[in-house]
Simulated scan of single mutants.
Amino acid sequence: MAAIPKDVHEQAQEPMAWFQHDANAQQDIKCQRLLMRRGNEGYGAYWRLCELLASTKHHSIAVDTDEDWLILAGAIGMRSMGAFDETVSIAETRDFIDCLLEIGLLVRDGKGHIESERMCKNALYFGKQRVNGAKGGRPKKKQENPQE
């Protein structure tokens, strides 16, 4: 794999306003596994998580503390209400994320964060676009001298 230029890598860490989502994503084997295990509710929570990853600097989410898990639970619509809501929310969100890790839709970065390899690829694409856009338009073509 070719080395990623520093300026592209830096730009890829910035939040994305949008990301590519294949119209047939549900046909991907990983998404099929998610649908089988968690149904449409889990599939929806997964895409909410993808949106969160896209809009977050570095495209990774901390899952190191109980507070991190509660924040994530709220962000992806898994926050329980009622008695023991924090405990239930943390347990259900951990279980859901473990499922996504097992399926291969997420990975751990080894620093207490989760991320999506697909989202990282999307971010690199946008990093390249941002760097190229900063260069301006295409260089002017050399004009041949018609009098010669």
Score class of each variant (00 low, 15 high):
M1H: 08
A2D: 12
A3M: 13
A3C: 13
I4S: 07
P5M: 09
P5R: 13
K6S: 13
K6W: 11
D7E: 14
D7A: 13
V8W: 08
Q11W: 05
A12W: 04
A12H: 01
P15N: 13
M16I: 02
W18V: 14
H21A: 00
H21Y: 06
D22W: 10
N24H: 15
Q26H: 14
Q26F: 14
Q26N: 13
Q27N: 11
D28C: 12
I29N: 09
K30D: 13
C31P: 02
C31H: 14
L34C: 07
L35G: 02
L35R: 04
R37V: 09
R37M: 08
R38Y: 00
R38P: 01
G39C: 09
N40D: 03
E41I: 05
G42D: 03
G44W: 06
G44R: 07
A45S: 07
Y46S: 05
Y46W: 08
R48L: 00
L49A: 05
C50Y: 04
C50R: 05
E51G: 07
L53N: 01
S55L: 08
H58P: 08
S60L: 05
I61D: 02
I61M: 03
A62R: 02
V63H: 01
T65M: 02
D66N: 07
D66L: 01
D68R: 01
W69L: 13
L70K: 04
L70W: 00
I71A: 02
I71T: 07
L72D: 02
A73K: 03
A75N: 05
M78R: 02
R79L: 10
S80M: 03
M81A: 09
M81C: 06
M81G: 03
G82T: 06
G82M: 05
E86M: 09
E86I: 01
E86R: 14
T87G: 12
V88C: 08
S89L: 10
D95R: 09
F96M: 04
F96V: 02
I97F: 00
D98V: 01
C99R: 02
L101S: 15
L101A: 11
E102T: 12
I103D: 14
G104P: 08
L105K: 01
L106V: 06
L106E: 03
V107T: 11
V107Y: 08
R108N: 00
G110P: 02
G110N: 04
G110E: 00
K111N: 15
K111F: 07
K111S: 14
G112S: 06
I114V: 15
E115S: 15
E117W: 10
E117F: 04
R118P: 11
R118C: 15
C120Y: 03
K121A: 15
K121Q: 14
N122P: 07
A123M: 00
L124H: 10
L124S: 10
Y125D: 11
Y125M: 13
G127D: 13
G127T: 15
G127R: 12
G127I: 12
G127F: 14
G127P: 12
K128M: 10
K128D: 05
Q129Y: 11
Q129P: 07
R130Y: 07
V131A: 00
V131G: 03
G133I: 03
G133P: 04
A134S: 07
K135E: 08
G136A: 01
G137C: 03
G137W: 00
R138H: 08
P139N: 01
K141Q: 06
K141Y: 09
Q143P: 11
Q143I: 11
Q143G: 14
N145Y: 12
N145T: 12
E148Q: 06
